[in-house]
């Protein structure tokens, strides 16, 4: 018995461990490449397709070719450029408004003591799970009453339902992590709450505001249901709906080339920003969720 154990011991040579470690590492790298392929290939293929026109589009050659036909056509199309402008206005305004509202709210929720704080936090959390469809009839009425139907103003208003809870939540968790003594020092220096917020907190919140703002911007930029329902005419459409409605001249000619080009145009700038702010976005996305 002891002999057998001794035997197995001796067969475990260092080389065996080295081999096993290498195999493990190779396996993991292969898995990593697979994940990379899975997440990136569709977008890569969209880019490749967007640079192909005519019968070239149907080639399954994986290497890119450069042909700007679709891009030129799109940028000359007033409906599409108008949609980009609309989306910029809508997402920009929504983001700006929610950041202003959320910064003030986050200061109160993260820093001040008052009765009912938990209730407020819970209320805000509950709003974030409202299905959009559930508020749509009431929102419809509100939008009509305000005279915003078929105007992009309706979207700026409606999008607050998801950007405000989200930004409040993320910024609150950020404000909470602020050193307590820094705030106390400001109080000692005679700062009102307003002054603490604007002179001490805000200058230090720049990065957090940028990443939270970018996330809110993406949410608003990508929204589809309200944009589809509250806007009737082409000139007021936002980008996602515009892309969703691009159609060919006939039933059989399905314009995938232009659609891919449009997709690339409206996503590439955002993706660059996302990659630049990658780390902060990840912490922004998860901070809100883990604490809930």
């Amino acid at each position: 018995m002891t002999e057998a154990i001794a035997n197995t011991r001796t067969t475990r040579k260092p080389s065996r461990y080295r081999w096993r470690r290498r195999a493990r590492k190779t396996g993991m790298v292969a898995a990593g490449l697979l994940v990379l392929f899975y997440t990136l290939f569709p977008y890569y293929w969209a880019i490749v397709s967007s640079f192909r026109s005519g019968s070239q589009l149907f080639s399954s050659n994986l290497l890119p070719t450069i042909d700007f036909t679709h891009y030129r056509a799109l940028l000359a199309d007033p409906v599409f450029t108008r949609a980009i402008l609309n989306s910029l206005i809508v997402a920009g305004s929504t983001t700006l408004i929610s950041l202003v509202l959320a910064t003030a709210a986050a200061y109160a929720l993260g820093r001040l003591n008052f009765l009912g704080k938990r209730a407020v936090l819970l209320t805000i959390l509950v709003v974030s799970i409202f299905p959009q469809i559930a508020v749509m009839p009431g929102m419809f009425e509100l939008v009509r009453w305000l005279g915003l139907y078929n105007r992009i103003g309706s979207l700026i208003l409606a999008y607050l339902i998801f950007t405000v809870p989200f930004t409040v939540w993320v910024l609150t968790s950020f404000v909470r992590e602020f050193p307590r003594e820094l705030e106390e020092a400001a109080i000692m220096d005679g700062c009102s709450h307003w002054r603490i917020l604007t002179r001490i907190l805000l200058p230090l919140m720049g990065p957090a505001l940028a990443s939270t703002g970018l996330l809110a911007f993406i949410l608003a930029w990508n929204e589809f249901l309200f944009a589809l329902t509250f806007i009737l005419s082409d000139e007021n459409r936002t980008v996602p709906v515009a892309i969703g409605l691009i159609s060919g001249s006939s039933r059989y000619e399905y314009p995938f080339g232009p659609i891919m080009a449009a997709s690339v145009i409206v996503t590439l700038p955002l993706l660059v920003l996302v990659l630049i702010f990658q780390r902060r976005i990840v912490s922004g996305l998860t901070a809100g969720a883990i604490k809930g």
């Binding site: 990593g32 994940v35 990379l36 997440t39 990136l40 569709p42 977008y43 293929w45 969209a46 397709s49 993406i218 930029w221 990508n222 589809f224 980008v239 996602p240 709906v241 892309i243 969703g244 995938f256 659609i259 891919m260 997709s263 409206v266 996503t267 955002l270 993706l271 996302v274 990659l275 990658q278 976005i281 990840v282």
Partner: peptide
């Protein structure tokens, strides 16, 4: 990979749907 994985999340659902429809 950690950066790449953000891409499917960040692009609009409409775009993802169209890209896959094409593929």
């Amino acid at each position: 990979i950690r950066a790449a994985i953000l891409i499917p999340w960040a692009i609009p659902v409409v775009v993802s749907a169209k890209v896959w429809e094409w593929m």
